[in-house]
Simulated scan of single mutants.
Amino acid sequence: MSPDDHFQDLKRLIAASGSKAKRISVIMPFLYESRQHKRSTRESLDCAMMLQELIHLGVQNIITFDAHDPRVQNAIPNSGFDTVQPTYQFVKSLVEQCDGVNFDSDHLMVISPDEGAMQRSIYMANVLGVDVGMFYKRRDYSTIVDGRNPIVAHEFLGASLEGKDVLILDDMISSGESMIDVAKELKARKARRVFCLSTFGLFTNGLDVFDKAVEEGIIEKVITTNLTYQTPELLERDWYVSSDVSKYVALLIDTLNHNGSISELLDPTERIKEYLEKNHL
């Protein structure tokens, strides 16, 4: 099914409640058309229109995971909108599935692959107590290839990477091209191991590019959540780690159903610190 089909089914479900529900909350892990969040010429703002449509249908709260740009909530300023970070689940997967990761500034660094991912990278780095670095994409705006301006180079801002494990943090992996380019740059700067962490793993160009990157020693592991469909082929890959968020989503649903506040659940800082202390990290 396409995202459009899913969205139509969601509206049918809301309409089927016949205005009898006490409260309607929508948990939409992968926010519909979230990349269309700003207008530079005459683009359609599908995400903003979708949010407004749900509110007009009677939805009171919308919860999503790692929105591409949280500012899209400005489309519905008087309604509940929360974007959740799966940082705790990423940390848990790193500890349980990846050997020898030391959570200190001498051995680990968080990398933002572009300026758009900087906020989530700073949060992850602050919680773990490590340094953060950033790449920004230098594009050729005079040409268009496959509907976009090609990336000429990745420029790096940050401290020395030599001998450190690095975490590349982003909201989604589509083709994986930019993440692999960043990983190559990190290895060229003598990074020890590169872990790619992304909330949504779409792998639109297949898995071969990642197979090759792992074979060449550019990437150690790729960690994404189970908030989108994962193909059997992906789950069979040795380099892939699935970060399970189902328990967390169930907790959000249970709390909402009992009229509880989800404020504490949205901030995983304390849970991460307790988990690292429990595992003596």
Rank of each mutant, 00 (worst) to 15 (best):
E177T: 15
E162T: 14
S261R: 10
K137R: 12
Q230D: 10
D140F: 03
P113H: 05
A250S: 14
C98A: 06
V245I: 12
V241T: 08
L108V: 06
V127H: 01
F65A: 10
K190I: 03
G206S: 11
D140A: 02
H6D: 13
Y275D: 07
L94D: 06
S243F: 06
D165C: 01
K278W: 09
D4C: 06
S17M: 15
S175G: 10
P268Y: 02
E33K: 15
D171N: 12
S40W: 12
R71V: 00
E53K: 11
N126T: 07
L186K: 06
L227S: 11
S175F: 04
K221F: 07
K273V: 02
F135Y: 14
L94W: 05
S19D: 15
D146E: 10
Y123F: 07
D181E: 14
D238T: 11
M28I: 15
P268V: 04
I14E: 10
P268Q: 13
D131S: 11
L169H: 08
T225N: 09
L235R: 15
E96V: 04
Y229T: 13
N126K: 12
S246E: 13
F156H: 09
E236F: 02
S34L: 03
D238W: 08
G206I: 10
G260S: 10
Y88N: 09
Q73C: 02
I223S: 10
R148E: 15
S174P: 05
Q85G: 01
L108Y: 06
M109Q: 11
P150M: 06
I55G: 00
D106E: 09
Y136T: 06
Y275I: 02
D244A: 03
Y32K: 07
G129W: 01
D114A: 00
L266M: 12
D244H: 06
H258F: 03
F81V: 00
K164W: 07
S93Q: 05
I218P: 00
V194F: 07
R192D: 14
R35A: 11
I223M: 12
V152N: 10
L235K: 15
S246I: 00
N279V: 08
D267G: 04
D99N: 10
Y88H: 13
Y88W: 07
D4Y: 08
S178H: 12
I219R: 03
V152C: 04
F103S: 07
Q97H: 11
D5A: 15
Q230M: 13
A159R: 08
E264N: 14
H258Y: 04
D181K: 13
M124Y: 05
K38E: 13
P77E: 00
G201K: 11
C196K: 00
Y88R: 11
L265G: 10
Q230G: 05
A153E: 15
Q8L: 14
N226D: 15
E215W: 02
P3A: 14
V95E: 04
M179L: 15
L251S: 12
H68Q: 03
V101G: 08
V130A: 01
F90K: 09
L265M: 12
S105G: 00
M49Q: 11
A125T: 03
I223D: 09
R193V: 01
C98E: 06
V214H: 11
K247F: 10
M124Q: 04
A16M: 14
D46Q: 12
H154I: 01
P70I: 12
A183H: 09
P150F: 05
